[in-house]
Design a protein around this nucleic acid. Structure first.
Length: 254
DNA sequence: ACGCCCTCCTGTTGGC
DNA sequence: TGCCAACAGGAGGGCG
């Protein structure tokens, strides 16, 4: 998309996680895409005069395809380019978002307080140790708090804790430096491996290339309740934390 | 400040 | 076959 000019923006359904601006077309038309970036799980389309922030939520998907191609059910927003292609957001659950800001996007209220990038410098045991002090919340729930850790969703939280050998219900404040060092390394390793595998397709996720991700085959605990742990063969347990499923190995994770 | 719960929404699955 | 409840990849908001 870089270098293309936006011809028009169509909003078929404005009721996403946040209402899509009614002025989106007037705002975007004529602007050029200068760069495409990412911050946590937000995509940033840097435009001539501002930035379009896109979040896929749980079920969102972006496709870049000929503008004339048929619109699918749940195609909510379409950005038409001067190349004849159009970027379409399809999102059955509508937990995604499309927001425009003319200010510094990193200063936007939704991005301003996000935690450091886990794959950048500075995300290490010392960082995790610092943010887990005096927090009674279970470490697995802390990993889902985007003000403290970004990039780790429900799948990778369970996976990282398995690799770090930490029980998901353990109070964050009880983690020692050594635990935090293993956990930071496990998070980086899991995210890196998942990215290289193209992501984790549970049902219908496909990447920008239209291909599913293959990390599901490499999951150690997620969705494996009752199945043998891939490290020690002990049956994997499933529990609920914050109304979401957590999986862990009672033998490997102490 | 923290921690917990609720919410948004549609689609799929499993039990009866 | 139909109906209903439970659950699903996220994460902000409000409350105590």
């Amino acid at each position: 998309m870089r270098g293309r000019r936006i011809r028009a923006a169509l909003v078929h359904e404005a009721r996403l996680r946040w209402p899509v601006s009614a002025d989106l077309n007037a705002t975007l038309a004529g602007q050029r895409v200068l760069a495409v970036q990412r911050r946590a799980k937000y995509l940033l389309l840097r435009l001539t005069r501002g930035t379009l922030l896109v979040h896929l939520g749980m079920s969102g998907n972006l496709r870049l395809l000929p503008q004339a191609s048929a619109r699918l059910k749940h195609d909510h927003v379409e950005i038409q380019l001067d190349s004849g292609l159009a970027l379409r957001l399809n999102d059955p659950r509508r937990f995604g978002s499309v927001l425009y800001t003319s200010e510094d996007p990193l200063a936007h209220p939704l991005l301003r307080e996000l935690a450091p990038e886990p794959l950048e410098e500075g995300f290490d045991g010392a960082y995790l140790h610092a943010v887990t002090r005096r927090r009674r919340v279970a470490i697995k729930l802390l990993l889902l708090n985007s003000r403290l850790v970004t990039g780790v969703g429900n799948i990778y939280a369970s996976e990282a804790l398995l690799h770090a050998r930490i029980r998901p219900r353990r109070a964050a404040r009880t983690l020692k430096v050594a635990d935090c060092t293993r956990l930071a390394a496990a998070i980086r390793r899991v995210l890196g491996a998942a990215i290289r595998a193209g992501g984790t397709t549970l049902r219908d996720y496909v990447g920008a290339d239209g291909e599913p991700g293959y990390f599901r085959q490499r999951l150690y605990v997620y969705e494996r309740a009752g199945l043998p742990c891939r490290r020690c063969r002990t049956p994997i347990r499933q529990i609920t934390q914050g109304q979401r499923s957590t999986y862990y190995c009672p033998q490997c994770q102490q």
